[in-house]
């Protein structure tokens, strides 16, 4: 990054994929070719995307560092900036401040079995780590993914599922209710989790999704015998600066933008502060 951490780099949207009714995926490249080539990050790190005139918002870089043709972000329409992002087209210019935040401890996860539990847009931060692991498949043991959405129409990355499976991933999909033509599971993510009942032995669980899902999944994992430090999740807080200065995103003495967004469950417990 340049010496002004508030100054975004200019980037161009290469492609837009409509994932669901309210989620779009942007593939962008930095306009500075050199920078794009040298750009490195850890899975789980985030970027602040600027639509100048509207503002900036935080999104996880959901492509893995092993695939560098573009940086991918999936954006759920929520408010001012995200609505504006949804109006953009391929070729449009945005600003990007990245990479920010800590990212996943993918090195410490080496040699472990992995369980991903994702719900809705929460699959975005898991995707980057998942693809990274697929690209370094030998380093990791069993990889099981439980991914749930309200209906098949609310599922992201459907076009990649075959590739994930081919990469040695045990992919378990579920939707909240029966849907014509749906051949995978039906039921809420926490329920499916207890059905699948992955063993906690030598396994790390990475969880991301809406707060209510996280709450019940944490409960379910504990039931299955997972220890707090075996459970990794990402926290969300309203952000502005993204660099630990503006004071907004704290939970206790930790800044989610700087010390997070990735935390283990025991870290979250120790942290205190409002979530």
């Amino acid at each position: 990054m340049n010496n002004n951490p508030y100054l975004p780099e200019l980037a161009t949207i290469q492609e837009i994929i409509t994932e669901t009714g309210n989620i779009r995926t942007l593939r962008i490249t930095l306009n500075d070719k050199d920078r794009m080539e040298r750009f490195t990050f850890r899975p789980g790190q985030v970027g602040q995307i600027s639509v100048f005139g509207t503002g900036e918002s935080t999104f996880v870089i959901n492509s893995p560092p092993t695939r560098k043709d573009y940086l991918q972000f999936s954006v759920m329409k929520a408010g001012e900036v995200t609505s504006r992002i949804h109006q953009l087209n391929a070729g449009d210019q945005v600003g990007l401040r990245a990479p920010l935040g800590n990212g996943f401890g993918f090195d410490e996860m080496k040699g472990h079995d992995i369980l991903f539990v994702g719900g809705g847009i929460g699959m975005a931060p898991l995707r980057t780590l998942l693809l990274y692991m697929i690209d370094n498949r030998a380093d990791y043991g069993d990889i099981t993914v439980i991914y749930g959405a309200r209906s098949p129409k609310d599922m992201c990355y459907t076009y990649e599922f075959e590739e994930w499976r081919a990469g040695g991933v045990n992919l378990i999909l579920t939707v909240d209710a029966e849907f014509p033509g749906w051949k995978e599971r039906v039921g809420f993510v926490p329920t499916v989790l207890s059905e699948v009942a992955p063993s906690p032995n030598n396994r790390i669980a990475v969880v991301c999704g809406p707060p209510i899902m996280i709450k019940f999944v944490l409960f379910g994992l504990t039931e299955l015998g997972f220890e707090d430090q075996q459970i990794i999740t990402t926290l969300e807080k309203r952000m502005k600066c993204g660099i630990g200065i503006c004071g907004r995103c704290n939970a206790g003495s930790k800044y989610v933008c700087l010390d997070g967004p990735v935390f283990s469950y025991d870290q979250i417990r120790a942290m205190g502060g409002e979530l």
Partner: peptide, 13 residues
């Protein structure tokens, strides 16, 4: 503590 907001008119801001 501070906030960051964009203000633009037409193409400039």
């Amino acid at each position: 503590c501070f906030s960051i907001t964009d203000e633009a008119e037409n193409l400039k801001g």
